[in-house]
């Protein structure tokens, strides 16, 4: 498909480093799918839809910085949604979110809660004012918070909430995890049964449609077979250890 023209209608500054960009076009998605966001003349990058008509951007590279410089009525090109998305199952689910990992998890929390599923969220960020979508997760269910500097909730990483038995992971039917890769690796290496956890992954994408193989983790295409993978599929792979840069060279995660 060619990129769909999406005209920007509104900006919401969510935290000092993240901004939600709303546009005039709605995309029906399974939470966890992604879209390719084209800033014309700059680059095209994969992003989660944080609402059916919005993306939430954390300023990182050239393309995300360019997204911060856009104004209302400017437009971006959107292709997608692509990939598989989260499989929602069970009566009682746990979300583990780190930083902008909240972007695909917030729509999941809302979708699950509206179907009568009990939702608990472990929400982590570097500090209090970087906690993303806290209110959305609270509306959907119970929220436990961890911040690196202890400015809100438990001091430490969001995964520490598991170590301290603040949360009993075993009592949940399904667990959904998105955030920085070392955080997700901690969850994969924890005592939680890996089959129970769905991880939403991030890799450098080129084609975005399962052809080129640039985003492969071992043989798995993150853009087409994922971006959501069950933990048992990721065991003993490059996940959490290596990723590939634009040239295809191995780089430590």
């Amino acid at each position: 498909m060619r990129p769909v023209d999406a005209v920007i209608t509104k900006f919401v500054d969510e935290t000092p480093s993240t901004r939600t960009i709303f546009f005039d076009t709605f995309f029906e998605q399974v939470p966890g799918q992604f879209v390719m966001v084209w800033v014309r003349g700059v680059d095209e990058i994969p992003m989660a839809l944080s609402y059916e008509n919005a993306i939430t951007v954390h300023k990182a590279g050239e393309a995300t910085s360019a997204l911060f410089e856009l104004d209302e009525c400017d437009s971006i090109g959107i292709r997608g949604p692509f990939g598989n998305g989260f499989g929602i199952s069970g009566k009682n689910i746990l979300l583990i979110s780190g930083g902008v990992g909240a972007a695909p998890l917030a729509p999941l929390a809302e979708r699950a809660a509206s179907s009568g599923i009990s939702v608990t969220t472990m929400l982590g960020a570097i500090k209090k004012d970087e906690l993303l979508f806290g209110k959305r997760f609270e509306t959907a269910g119970k929220v436990l918070i961890a911040t690196d500097d202890g400015s809100e909730g438990r001091k430490g990483y969001v995964t520490d909430l598991l170590d301290d038995n603040d949360v009993d992971a075993d009592r949940f039917d399904s667990i959904y995890c998105c955030g920085p890769e070392p955080m997700m690796k901690k969850v994969l290496d924890s005592s939680i049964i890996p089959e129970k956890v769905q991880f939403s992954l991030h890799r450098y994408f080129k084609c975005g449609i399962g052809v080129c193989g640039a985003c492969c983790i071992d043989g798995l295409r993150v853009c087409k077979d994922g971006p959501v993978f069950r933990g048992d599929v990721l065991k003993d792979t490059e996940f959490g250890k290596f990723k590939r840069d634009g040239c295809g060279c191995k780089v430590k995660v």
């Binding site: 990129p3 390719m36 680059d43 292709r79 975005g208 080129c212 040239c247």
Partner: peptide, 19 residues
């Protein structure tokens, strides 16, 4: 080592793929 061109690097069209 070569990083290649900036994205978009591939797009599906009605008649095939352009890359």
């Amino acid at each position: 080592p070569k990083p290649g061109h900036p994205n978009p690097t591939m797009v599906k069209l009605r008649c095939g793929y352009l890359n």
